[in-house]
């Protein structure tokens, strides 16, 4: 399955990845190659096989509902680019 330029641009936007103009043909080619591999895998007959959510033959372990974390805000905010009044500051985003 081939993928077109328009779709590559849309995926890049969703993933917040900036692609240079000259990168686009190469990325388009790489992803098309991957999709070709997927196509090939899809030709395998999987009727009656349940989709697998995880390759490990194991299930999730649960933890008791207890608070064991301490407040380490100062340490975390010490390495943050910008913090004030206990808040992490980020470029303004309003939808």
């Amino acid at each position: 399955m081939a993928i077109d330029r328009e779709e590559i641009e849309k995926i890049a936007t969703l993933a917040r990845i900036k692609l240079d103009e000259q990168q686009i043909p190469q990325v388009t080619q790489s992803i098309s190659d991957i999709l070709a591999l997927v196509d090939q895998m899809q030709s395998v007959d999987t009727d009656g096989v349940t989709a697998m959510a995880n390759p490990l033959d194991a299930t999730q372990r649960l933890r008791p509902d207890e608070v064991t974390e301490r407040d380490e805000r100062d340490a975390f905010q010490g390495i943050a680019p910008n913090a004030e009044s206990g808040l992490y500051l980020v470029p303004k985003v309003i939808e």
Binding site: R63, D65, E66, V67, T68, E69, R73, F76, S85, G86
Partner: peptide, 24 residues
């Protein structure tokens, strides 16, 4: 109404100082 968060052991209590209940 759990005491701790769904995937971490930080407190879920309402009204704490900002980011004092946010672990790594």
């Amino acid at each position: 109404a759990t005491q701790s968060k769904i995937f971490s052991a930080s407190s879920t209590q309402f009204g704490a100082e900002p980011n004092t209940q946010a672990c790594a």
